[in-house]
């Protein structure tokens, strides 16, 4: 299988994971959605030089992965896959922000490096939490949950089809790149002109395919709702999950636990 095909099956694996049956999987998607949203807001609300206070937040994605029996390696690889974006965002900070902010012994660490570390940590936290949410819930349930939370239908249906068409786009791309490779007489790389042609053609083919997919959905009575077989109920477990985590996030946000812990330890040593 080509690399593209393999990563496609990999995306589909998210759905397989979402079909699990741990208590976290069975939790109403709304509880998971709101909690994760709060988590993300809490994480991004820190100042740009904050690193230590972010560390306790690692508990949430780690808990989701462990309780939901998600393969940590797989999730971590997915996080790495998108990490170049975060690196691109922060990579120039050390050059522009040279003021020394932190001293470790005789070594001065500039503000740029600290903020770069902060960006990477936030990226790791938010993306891993979002991926864990997806792997525990599945895109269809997430969309239905969003609808029930009052998100605009146009937006939710967009999200749904984005996921649906991702597969057709990848499948078309794989076919076309393979067809090109087979007739390129062993030359690697692609001339720019050919690349443009392929891209345009790909767009048209994908549009066609998307239309067929949509027609097939209509033929089976699709009306903008994806109904899922799992029931929805906000019960005691949902409330418990939501409020416990909210309380923890508040604690992590307003009390810098690692610093407190450090002070307590150094206090004891004195």
């Amino acid at each position: 299988m080509s690399e593209l095909g393999a990563s496609l099956v990999d995306i589909g694996y998210m759905d397989t994971l979402a079909a699990g049956s741990t208590p976290l999987h069975r939790l109403d998607p709304r509880a998971k959605l709101l909690t994760t949203a709060l988590f993300i807001v809490a994480v991004v609300s820190f100042g740009k030089y904050e690193v230590s206070a972010l560390l306790p937040f690692l508990l949430y994605p780690v808990y989701l992965a462990a309780e939901g029996r998600l393969p940590a390696r797989y999730l971590f690889k997915k996080v790495l896959l998108v990490s170049p974006f975060a690196v691109m965002v922060g990579i120039f900070n050390p050059f522009f922000d040279g003021g020394v902010l932190l001293r470790v012994g005789h070594l001065g660490v500039s503000g740029g490096w600290v903020s770069f570390a902060s960006i990477l940590l936030r990226f790791l936290l938010t993306v891993s939490a979002a991926l864990a949410l997806l792997a525990l819930t599945g895109i269809n349930s997430i969309c239905e949950g969003l609808l029930r939370l009052g998100a605009p239908r146009a937006f939710v249906v967009q999200l749904l089809f984005l996921n649906r068409y991702l597969f057709s786009l990848a499948a078309e791309t794989e076919n076309m790149t393979r067809a090109r490779a087979l007739r390129s007489a062993g030359k690697r790389g692609m001339r720019f002109g050919v690349f443009i042609q392929i891209l345009g053609h790909l767009l048209l083919k994908t549009l066609d395919r998307a239309e067929r997919v949509y027609r097939a959905m209509l033929a089976r009575g699709f009306d903008g709702h994806i109904r899922v077989t799992r029931g929805y109920k906000i019960g005691r477990r949902e409330l418990l999950f939501f409020f416990c985590w909210t309380a923890l996030f508040a604690l992590f946000r307003f009390v810098n636990l690692p610093v407190m812990l450090g002070q307590a330890v150094t206090g004891l040593l004195k």
Binding site: G12, D15, T16, A18, A19, G138, N140, R164, F167, S168, A171, R209, R212, V213, R215, A216, M217, A219, R220, G221, F222, D223, H225, I226, R227, V228, T229
Partner: peptide, 26 residues
């Protein structure tokens, strides 16, 4: 009931069970 030429256009839920259930739920 329409069966499309390419089943890949027609199947899109995460599992076969859910896909068959799609029309019924609608």
């Amino acid at each position: 009931g329409m069966v499309f030429q390419n089943p890949d256009d027609q199947l899109f839920m995460p599992t076969v069970f859910e896909d068959v259930a799609f029309g019924l739920l609608n």
